[in-house]
Nucleic acid binder design. Structure first.
Length: 854
RNA sequence: GGGCGAUUGGCGCAGCUGGUAGCGCGCUUCCUUCACACGGAAGAGGUCGUGGGUUCAAGUCCCGCAUCGCCCACCA
C-alpha cells in the first residue's frame, strides 16, 4: 500500500500506472484461467484496427474508451478479457502517405534496389507525382512497413496514455505474415466453395489510383455539369433526334439510344437506327423502363460506360462494348471499329490521348464547328460517384477482377446474412437497420481485387497457353502449407521458376486484396483461426464488435459475410456502434475539413481520466460535440477525478475499529441507497449503457460527498462517539464500492486512491455486489432535504455555513420527522446547532433559526 | 426518391414500462482555507420543434408536417 500524498493530484498518474499495469500484467489475457473456465469465462473483443497512416484523432479516443469501459467492467466481473489491438497498415492510405512522406512512387516494372535511400524523410509538403522517384514494388513495400511501424508506436503510446486496458501482447498487423497467411487461406476456401470467382466486367475505376473500387467505397460528391443537346440523325434521313448528355466526350462510345417503352414521342423510333453526330455510327433506338421521359429530352444515349445505368442498359439490352477510356482516364488511341468514316476517324484522332476533361472540350468544339451542338445548358450541380479516398470522378472500364459472393445475387445468402444480424444484439438497436438496408441494397458481388502494391497478394497464378497468353480458366492455387505466398516471387507446385511467363508455363496474379478483404477477417486474425484452435474456441464467436457507424457497410458487413461463409454463424454476439465527433458547428470532424483535433494534446492538457469521462458520458450511437477551445465535459471529468482523490484521502483519514458494525440508521440508509446504485450501474453496463452507469454512480458520488460525508464527518472523527465505528465503516465501505463503480471510467484516479488502502489493482478487483443491508433509503433523503433547508437558512442570512446556531426549529412532514430524529446528532453537528427541535409542516424547511453560541 | 436518428431552460445532455419536467456548464448571490480554490452553499431560468389523435392524464404512445444530421438510390 502506498502513502497518501498531502496534496493528491492527477499529474503524472498516467505514466505511473501505465508502467505499473505493464509490469504487473494487469490486462494480460490469462490463457490458463480462460482454459479452466471455458468459453463462458471469457469476454472477447474484436477490436477495430485503426489505419496506421498518420495520426489518431479524437474520435478514436471516444470510441475506444467506450470499448475499454466494457472491457474493464467484464474484467472486474471475473471474466478473462481478451482485448487485443490491431493496426490496419495495408492499403491505399499507407501507400499515399508513403508517397508523400518519402517522395516516391511504386513502379512494379523496376528492379529491387538494395539499400535504397528515399529522397525525403517526413516531408510536410505534398510532392507532385511527377517529382516522385519511381521505385520497385519491393522497395516501396519496405518503405510502407518502415513508416507504419513508426506510426504504430505512436498510436500505442497515445492509447496507453489514454489508459486502454488492452493486452499489448495480443497485437496484430494487417500486413504481417500471419495475417497474409490467414487472409490467403480464407480466400482459398472461398475459391474452393465457389464463393470467390473472377469475371471480366465493367468496373468502377479510380484513374489516379489506377485501381478498381468496390461499391462499399463509393461516395457521391456534387459536381458541376451542363446538359449538351446533341442532334442524332435518323438513319432513313427523315430528320434528327435530340438527346441531352452531361458527357458528350463519350459520344464515340455510344452504343444505342434509349427511351421509355410508353413514351409516345419515341415509340415510332423503336427498332429503327440513328447515326451519331460527328462519328457517324449507326446505333439502334431501344425501349427500356429505366429511361425517364421527364429527364432531358426523354431519350438518352447509352455509352460504354458513363454511369451505373449504362451498365444496366448495356447488360440487359445486350449491347456491344465500345470502351474508349483507358485505365489512365485518357481516351485510348484506337477508335472503336465501328467508326469507319474518314470524318469520324479524324474526329476521334482529335480525342485520342486526351483526358476526359480535354476530350469533352474537344468534342464540344467539333460539334459546334459542324453545327451539331444544339444547345448547352447552364451549369448545374449533380451527384457524381467518387472513390471515398479519391480526388477525381470514377470512370467505368471493363476489367477482369476477383469477386466474392455477398448475397447481391443470391437471395438465400442475403437472407441468412440478415437473419444472423437479427440474432445479434446491436447497441443501439437501430444500427441494425443500417446493416439490413445495406445488405438488401447490394447491387453486385464484392469486388476484392485491387491493382495496388501494398497489401495481401491474391494467391493465384494462371496457366499460360502455347502462345503465352493467360488462360483464365486455369487458375493455379498454392498448397495451404506454402502460405503465405507472393505469386510474383513464389512458384506454384509442379512448376519451376523458368516457366514463369513462358508459353505453357504460368503467370502470377499481380493484384492484391482490397484492405477490407483482410480486415473482414479480424476475428480470425486475432483469434488464432487455423493456427491455434484452442484459442479460437475460447474466443469465438467474439462477444463484442465495437466500431464506427460509418463502416457498417464495409467492415461490419464484410466480417459478417466472411464468418457466415466460413462458419455459418455471426462472428459476434454484440455490436457496439459509437457515434462520431462533431465540432461546435455540428459538422462531422474530418481531415478534409481541417477541424481535426489530435488527442495527444487533449490528453496531456486535461488528463486522461477527464477525457475518458467525456467519452463515457455519451451513449453508444450518439454523436458527441467536442469544442477544443472549451471542452466543458472534459473539465467536469477532471473535477470528478480530483474530487475522487480528495474524498478518498478524507475518508481514509477516519480510523475503522476492527469490530466496527453498521449501527446507525443514517449509515445503513446510505449503504442501502448505494446498493441501489450498484444494481442500476451493473444493469446498465450489462446492456452496454456506460453513460447511464456513470450517471447514476456520479450522481450518488456527489450526494455522498456533499451530504453524507458532511453529515457524518464529525461522528466519524470522534472516537468517543458510540456512532463512530458505524460511520467510519460505512464511509470505508462506500468508498471502496464507489471507487470500483467508477474504475472503468476514471481508471487512473480510482487506481491511485485504491492503492492507498488496498493491495493489487482495482481493475482486477471484484465488481461490487449489493450488500443487502436493512437500511431505509428514506432516512438519507430526508436528512439530505433537511440539510438543504438548514444551508438555505444560513445562505439567506448571508452567514457562513459554519456559523453557530443557538436554536433551530426544523419543519417536516410527519413521516420525515421520524427519519430526521434518527440522525439528529449528525444534523446538529453539521449545522453547529446547539438546540434542535421539530415541527410538523407540509414541506421540509427551517421554521425558526436563532444564530449564536449555546 | 427511400431509410434511420435528432428536435427538452443561453449551451451540452437525462428523462426506463405515460401521471402536470431533471442534471451539468454558464449566470446571480453568498461562503471560505480543520479532504478538496482544479473549492463549498443557495438561487434565478424550460410546458418539452409543430399540427392533430388516443387517454381521466402525454416530452413519454399513434399519425401528419417542419428543421437539422447521417446512410442509401438506376440523378441521361
Amino acid at each position: 500500500m502506498a502513502e497518501i500524498p498531502d496534496k493528491p493530484a492527477l499529474e503524472g498518474l498516467e505514466a505511473k500506472w501505465d508502467v505499473a499495469w505493464k509490469d504487473a500484467g494487469t490486462y494480460r489475457f490469462d490463457r490458463a484461467a480462460a482454459e479452466a473456465s471455458g468459453r463462458d469465462g471469457v469476454y472477447s473483443i474484436d477490436t477495430p484496427p485503426p489505419t496506421a497512416s498518420g495520426s489518431l484523432h479524437i474520435g478514436h479516443v471516444f470510441s475506444f474508451t467506450h470499448t475499454d469501459i466494457k472491457a474493464r467492467y467484464e474484467r472486474m466481473r471475473g471474466k478473462s478479457v481478451f482485448y487485443p489491438m490491431g493496426w490496419d497498415d495495408n492499403g491505399l492510405p499507407t501507400e499515399r502517405r508513403v508517397q508523400n512522406y518519402y517522395g516516391v512512387r511504386c513502379d512494379p516494372s523496376l528492379p529491387y534496389e538494395e539499400g535504397f535511400t528515399p529522397p525525403f524523410e517526413g516531408t510536410t509538403k505534398t510532392i507532385k507525382p511527377a517529382d516522385q522517384v519511381p521505385i520497385s514494388r519491393r522497395n516501396f513495400i519496405e518503405l510502407c512497413e518502415r513508416l507504419t511501424v513508426e506510426d504504430e508506436k505512436q498510436f500505442e503510446a497515445v492509447f496507453r496514455q489514454l489508459g486502454l486496458s488492452v493486452d499489448w501482447e495480443q497485437t496484430y498487423r494487417t500486413i504481417s505474415d500471419d495475417t497474409i497467411r490467414t487472409s490467403q487461406l480464407a480466400f482459398l476456401r472461398n475459391i474452393e466453395r465457389g464463393e470467390a470467382y473472377q469475371a471480366l466486367a465493367p468496373t468502377l475505376w479510380d484513374i489516379d489510383f489506377r485501381s478498381a473500387i468496390a461499391q462499399a467505397e463509393l461516395e457521391d460528391r456534387d459536381q458541376q455539369a451542363s446538359y449538351h443537346r446533341l442532334a442524332f440523325h435518323k438513319a432513313d434521313g427523315t430528320g434528327d433526334v435530340h438527346i441531352e448528355t452531361t458527357r458528350p466526350e463519350l459520344l464515340p462510345a455510344c452504343v444505342a439510344l434509349v427511351a421509355h417503352p410508353d413514351d409516345e414521342r419515341y415509340r415510332p423510333l423503336f427498332g429503327t437506327n440513328v447515326r451519331t453526330p460527328l462519328f457517324d455510327v449507326e446505333v439502334p433506338v431501344l425501349p427500356h423502363p429505366l429511361a425517364q421521359p421527364d429527364k432531358g429530352s426523354g431519350i438518352a444515349m447509352i455509352c460504354t460506360f458513363g454511369d451505373m445505368t449504362d451498365i444496366i442498359w448495356w447488360r440487359e439490352l445486350n449491347l456491344p462494348n465500345r470502351t474508349i477510356l483507358g485505365k489512365d482516364g485518357r481516351v485510348i488511341a484506337d477508335a472503336p471499329d465501328v467508326i469507319v468514316s474518314a470524318a469520324g476517324r479524324e474526329a476521334y484522332a482529335e480525342l485520342a490521348g486526351k483526358t476526359v476533361f480535354s476530350a469533352k472540350k474537344a468534342v464540344v468544339d467539333l460539334l459546334q464547328a459542324r453545327g451539331e451542338l444544339v444547345e448547352v445548358s447552364k451549369p448545374f450541380t449533380h451527384p457524381v460517384k467518387f472513390f471515398e479516398k479519391g480526388d477525381r470522378p470514377l470512370e467505368i472500364v471493363s476489367t477482369r477482377q476477383w469477386y466474392i459472393r455477398n448475397g447481391a445475387r443470391d437471395e438465400q445468402l442475403r437472407e441468412r446474412l440478415i437473419a444472423f444480424g437479427r440474432e445479434m444484439s446491436w447497441h443501439p438497436d437501430f444500427m441494425r437497420v443500417r446493416y439490413e438496408n445495406w445488405t438488401e441494397g447490394l447491387t453486385g458481388d464484392w469486388l476484392v481485387s485491387r491493382q495496388r502494391f501494398f497489401g495481401v497478394p491474391i494467391p493465384v497464378w494462371y496457366g499460360l497457353d502455347d502462345r503465352g497468353e493467360r488462360d483464365y480458366s486455369r487458375v493455379i492455387v498454392p498448397d495451404v502449407a506454402d502460405l503465405p505466398v507472393d505469386p510474383t516471387v513464389d512458384v506454384p507446385t509442379g512448376f519451376t521458376e523458368d516457366q514463369r511467363g513462358v508459353p505453357g508455363g504460368f503467370d502470377a496474379e499481380r493484384d492484391i486484396f482490397d484492405t477490407w478483404a483482410t480486415s473482414s477477417l479480424t476475428p480470425q486474425l486475432v483469434g488464432g483461426w487455423e493456427r491455434d484452435e484452442s484459442l479460437w474456441n475460447l474466443v469465438s464467436p467474439f462477444d463484442l464488435r465495437p466500431q464506427g457507424q460509418d463502416i457498417i457497410r464495409t467492415w461490419l458487413f464484410s466480417t459478417m459475410l466472411r464468418s457466415v461463409l466460413e462458419d455459418d454463424r455471426a462472428p459476434w454476439r454484440d455490436a457496439a456502434v459509437s457515434g462520431f465527433i462533431v465540432d461546435p458547428d455540428r459538422k462531422k470532424m474530418s481531415k478534409s475539413k481541417g477541424n481535426v483535433v489530435t488527442p495527444a494534446d487533449i490528453l496531456s492538457t486535461h488528463g486522461s481520466d477527464a477525457v475518458r469521462y467525456w467519452a463515457a458520458s455519451s451513449r453508444l450511437g450518439a454523436d458527441a460535440a467536442f469544442d477544443p477551445q472549451n471542452p466543458t465535459q472534459v473539465k467536469i471529468g477532471r473535477r470528478l477525478a480530483i474530487k475522487i482523490l480528495n474524498a478518498a484521502k478524507f475518508v481514509l483519514s477516519f480510523p475503522v475499529p476492527a469490530d466496527a458494525e453498521i449501527t446507525h440508521a443514517l449509515d445503513a440508509s446510505m449503504l442501502v441507497t448505494l446498493d441501489g446504485v450498484v444494481a442500476e450501474a451493473t444493469k446498465a453496463l450489462e446492456g452496454y449503457d456506460h453513460a447511464r452507469a456513470l450517471e447514476v454512480t456520479e450522481s450518488f458520488f456527489w450526494t455522498f460527498c456533499d451530504d453524507y460525508l458532511e453529515l457524518v464527518k464529525e461522528r466519524a472523527y470522534d472516537r468517543t462517539d458510540v456512532g463512530q465505528p458505524s460511520a467510519a465503516l460505512a464511509l470505508r465501505t462506500a468508498l471502496s464500492t464507489l471507487l470500483r463503480l467508477l474504475a472503468p471510467v476514471v481508471s487512473f484516479a480510482t487506481e491511485e486512491a485504491w492503492s492507498w488502502f488496498e493491495d493489487g489493482s482495482i481493475h482486477t478487483a471484484a465488481w461490487p455486489e449489493p450488500a443487502g443491508g436493512t437500511g431505509d433509503p428514506a432516512v438519507l433523503s430526508a436528512v439530505g432535504e433537511a440539510l438543504v433547508g438548514i444551508r438555505r437558512a444560513k445562505t439567506e442570512a448571508k452567514a457562513s455555513q459554519k456559523t453557530p446556531v443557538a436554536r433551530l426549529v426544523l419543519g417536516a412532514p410527519a413521516d420525515r420527522l421520524a427519519a430526521l430524529r434518527l440522525a439528529e446528532g449528525d444534523l446538529k453537528a453539521v449545522g453547529r446547532i446547539a438546540d434542535l427541535s421539530y415541527a410538523e409542516t407540509a414541506a421540509t424547511a427551517v421554521v425558526e433559526i436563532e444564530f449564536g453560541e449555546a
